[in-house]
Design a protein around this nucleic acid. Sequence first.
DNA 1: CTCGTAGGTTACTCAACCGTAGGTAGTGGC
DNA 2: GCCACTACCTACGGTTGAGTAACCTACGAG
Lengths: 205, 205
Amino acid sequence: MAFVADGTRTRLSAVERRNQLVEVGRAVFAEKGYEAASVEEIAERAKISKPVVYEHFGGKEGLYAVIVDREMEYVIEQISTAIAEGTPRERVEAASLAFMRYVKERPSGFAVLSRDAPVTTGLSNLLAEVAHRVGNVFRAEFKRAGYDARTAPLYAQALIGMVTFVGQWCIDNTRMSPDEAASHVAALAWMGLRHLPEKPELLGG
Amino acid sequence: MAFVADGTRTRLSAVERRNQLVEVGRAVFAEKGYEAASVEEIAERAKISKPVVYEHFGGKEGLYAVIVDREMEYVIEQISTAIAEGTPRERVEAASLAFMRYVKERPSGFAVLSRDAPVTTGLSNLLAEVAHRVGNVFRAEFKRAGYDARTAPLYAQALIGMVTFVGQWCIDNTRMSPDEAASHVAALAWMGLRHLPEKPELLGG
DNA sequence: CTCGTAGGTTACTCAACCGTAGGTAGTGGC
DNA sequence: GCCACTACCTACGGTTGAGTAACCTACGAG
């Protein structure tokens, strides 16, 4: 995969071209969002003409779908690995750390995923699913506090939300390393879970 | 403000028309996002022709700006009021509750705000600012745990992230009331803050 | 050498949509 | 009952951008 920007119009194999287009496309979609991004610009940045994109991906939607798919795959893999073993607390920490590192390492991919709501929701649900299947990380805490299974996805959403927002903040403010941010997030999340009161009463208003 | 959809082409005053267009526009922008939304559709849904929109708001961007501005104003006001007084814990609960209710009551406004990243970031910062000025809600907890002020915005971001994601989840899953969801979020957030360890060590990896 | 094919290009069509020019009808003041 | 003004309309220009048709060219196999 050597599509350096050295001016010379290199002729790439189909696979290489696909990979390049996925990378370039990810960058463009991340910058402008799906609607505002144009196939022309993607082609231009890749130093090819538009029909090539159509040749490989069928169109704008096709390219976008592949990009999102690969990115989801990647994130899920990172988190799944991180969460695979250890005590519940270690899992929370590892997952948080993995996500923050992902955000730092692939900001454009993160931007694409977090830009459209359906994808984000899907990601959250998928992670909740992963968490559930891999080891039921929160079950012990829930059980202790007497919560029913109905609330589990809520807490999963809350965790993803925390990590996502702090991740974005971390990109904007380069003052704090992802690792340090991850520690804070993990601490907040874990301590919150650990000390959940029994059936918090509804609040008046 | 009585622009009922009764078929008859009512002639509205400037103020009424503006209000109507803000509402209709909010709905359309919420559904499609800024780029995909069209002035034509907004005009169509409002049962008027396109130039009217340009007359009142100068263009697509102008209308969008007004919508976002009003929405921000509204949210900030809700949260500010909620967070104005009480113990720190009560403030966290009240803020969480206020936000969840907002999400439930004005889903389209919430969608507009949460759709574009800059606005969301701005909102978070603004809320952090509000929290800071109104009473330094977290200061006591931070001080106890020995954190510096640099980490405060991180926790603000985390809280907004939690509430935002759970809010979205609450819209999609009508199974849980905003009030109940707010209790859970507040409990998680508060317990997390309350039990922050002293300087969580960095995690290996 | 030549021929087939994979990789790439130019040059278009068609539709959507932002924004505007210029004209029309209801309505309040006097 | 006329005047002026406000609200609103039809109809268009110009641009952008998705998607396609038809043609071109490097290059390895035989």
